[in-house]
């Protein structure tokens, strides 16, 4: 018996039972049957045809007018069949698009993956977790000469446009010559790229820093990015790592202020995205103080374990539902 024969038989059963005793139960079964029809992608005109076939079977002496009226109904149903098939094809197309986005998301992940370079002087820890499929946060480490260049960026805007924008930032950064690696100059350069190439409703905040192991100086500049922290080991206290500057892409002529800081043994540089400070718990947004005390709780551990532990605690506080992409980076001077 083919699937279609089985459907015909079932329909005939249901219909004849209904015609004998018009119960709500049978109507309910009829409704469930229609779900089955949809599952098997039976289009409306097919159902009418099924009905005609069954009626012919049940009432061989049906009047000609009645019989002909069904043919007319069938013809009138064709338009719905048209619409039904269009719907199916659009749905298939949507599924295809979704799986393409999935591929794009995993491509983005590989593209933006940045290996953490090894330095004798530094202990580095990173955690970056997207809230949705595509990560709107971006971080990048580059070892240029003896120095460590580090960037953290957050695209205001989500989804595919943000991801495309991110790839552009990455390649713009990769193609800048080494001598432009001074953070404030790099931001000025990127700002021009973003201003020229990105739609005006998309903004990028960025922090860029360079660590020089010889002098143990940290040079940095910021473009509207969430301030990080500096941990001063001697004083055993945390300070905000303020780097003032306009977000990238607003004006072509924006300039950025260069900052520098000497880093002592045991000091830490902590960089983050606003997904860290905008963690929302049942008590409201988490305070920067709370993040500091979380870091303090784990700071006896290696940098990678600090960031992972902080992330896990914040994730738990939010009941494992990240609302924004989360990036946290810690640099700790060892010697």
């Amino acid at each position: 018996m083919t699937a279609k024969d089985a459907l015909t038989e079932r329909y005939q059963d249901l219909l004849s039972i209904y015609l004998k005793a018009k119960t709500e139960t049978t109507l309910y079964k009829g409704q469930q049957f229609s779900r089955k029809l949809l599952e098997q992608q039976i289009s409306p005109e097919d159902l009418v045809s099924l009905h005609i076939q069954v009626m012919d079977e049940l009432f061989p002496n049906m009047s000609d007018e009645m019989r002909d009226s069904f043919d007319f109904l069938l013809e009138a149903m064709i338009g719905y069949g048209f619409a039904y098939r269009e719907h199916q094809s659009l749905r298939d197309k949507q599924q295809q698009l979704e799986s393409e986005i999935e591929v794009a998301a995993s491509m983005q992940q590989t593209l933006l993956l940045s290996d953490v370079p090894q330095f004798d002087e530094l202990d580095i820890g990173v955690v970056s977790v997207p809230a949705k499929k595509m990560n709107g946060d971006y971080y990048n480490f580059v070892k240029s000469g003896n120095s460590l260049s580090i960037a953290v960026a957050d695209i205001i805007g989500k989804g595919i446009p943000a991801a495309l924008c991110m790839s552009m930032i990455k390649y713009a950064m990769d193609s800048l010559p080494d001598e432009q690696m001074k953070p404030h100059l790099l931001l000025e350069n990127l700002n021009r790229v973003v201003e020229q190439n990105v739609h005006s409703n998309m903004f990028i905040t960025m922090f860029h820093g360079v660590y020089e192991p010889e002098s143990h100086k940290f040079f940095y500049a910021g473009a509207g990015h969430e301030p990080g922290f500096i941990y001063n080991a001697k004083e055993d206290s945390f300070f905000d790592l303020i780097a003032k500057g306009l977000v990238l892409g607003v004006s072509r002529t924006t300039t950025y202020h260069p900052y520098e800081k000497e880093i002592q043994i045991g000091d830490m540089v902590i960089l983050l995205s606003d997904g860290v400070t905008e963690c929302r718990t049942s008590k409201g947004f988490i305070e920067r103080d709370e993040i500091v005390s979380l870091i303090r709780k784990y700071m006896h551990l290696p940098a990678q374990q600090i960031v992972e532990n902080v992330f896990q605690e914040l994730d738990r506080l939010q009941e494992f539902e990240l609302r924004d992409d989360f990036t946290l980076i810690i640099l700790k001077r060892l010697v």
Binding site: I78, G79, F82, A83, R85, E86, S89
Partner: peptide
């Protein structure tokens, strides 16, 4: 009918 040539193709 609102489906044009792609509709014909599917029929």
């Amino acid at each position: 009918l609102g489906a044009g040539l792609p509709g014909v193709k599917r029929l």
